[in-house]
Amino acid sequence: MIEATSQSQARTATAARAERRTNWRTLLLALHSTLMYIFLYAPIVVLVLFSFTTDSFGARLTGFTFSWYGRLLQDQRLIGAAWNTLEVALVSTVLSTIIGTLMALAMERYRFRGRTSVDALLYLPIVIPEIVMALALLAFFAFSFGIIENITGRQLKMSLTTVIISHIAFSISFVVVVVRASLKGFDQRLEEAAQDLGANAWQTFWRVTFPLILPGIIGGALLAFTISLDDFIISFFTTGPGTSLLPIEVYSQVKRAVTPKINAISTLMLLISMTLVGLSQFVQRQRR
């Protein structure tokens, strides 16, 4: 993801000359950038620091304690919500990765009528405001549950299933984008070579194509997993009463009262996100 495509040496030389000439400009830029990094990291540092404070209002650093982390373990609601979040993230990641990979193959390897429309349909979930999508899904579920009840008499309710369905609808597009990128740099002659050597389509896919695009698929899956773990808005509107997810639980606790316990759970969530980023960076480095 972060790949500095270094340009020609000539540019660096010119830039260096310009830099010497306008030293104070660089200094100003450096100062600005330093302030920006402080702006970016100060809240995170404060958040982590105050998860260890003994002050129960979380306003002062009165002493050091691990007790807030201990209390997390006693909060059954929070733990239940964490398991729900994990379940949703795992199921939706697996399904959206499979569906998205298939779709990426179709979009990259075939020309067909309506391809541009499918492309548009794929990009819409990325650009549409999340809250509009969330409300539309809420309305859709209520609407179709009403119809189902009228026809079959069965009463369906919003639950983890509706959250999973919604997360998949949201994640497919992101998986497709990432997997398509890995298919673009793919040398198709390798597949032709395999087929010339007598491999059928199935063997060619599993022995040649799949291993080569695997880093892209893993990248897409990690993205889908992170999006699902972090999602608040869509989960908030598509979950049922009584089924909470971690971000929703944090939101409702924050609305009630600010305590260092929320800092503790936030710090843990922070650690998980960072581990995932580290993992995806590692996978991408393996690719090179």
Binding site: Y41, F232, P247, V254, M274
Partner: peptide, 29 residues
């Protein structure tokens, strides 16, 4: 690469958590 990565890290953390961090910074106490 390092500086760019440092810009990215906060973006990878939960939006709610980031907003909450500002609550503790800006609160009355």
């Amino acid at each position: 690469n390092l500086l760019l990565f440092l810009v990215l890290i906060p973006f990878w953390t939960n939006f709610l958590v980031r907003t909450y961090a500002w609550m503790i910074i800006l609160a009355n106490n």
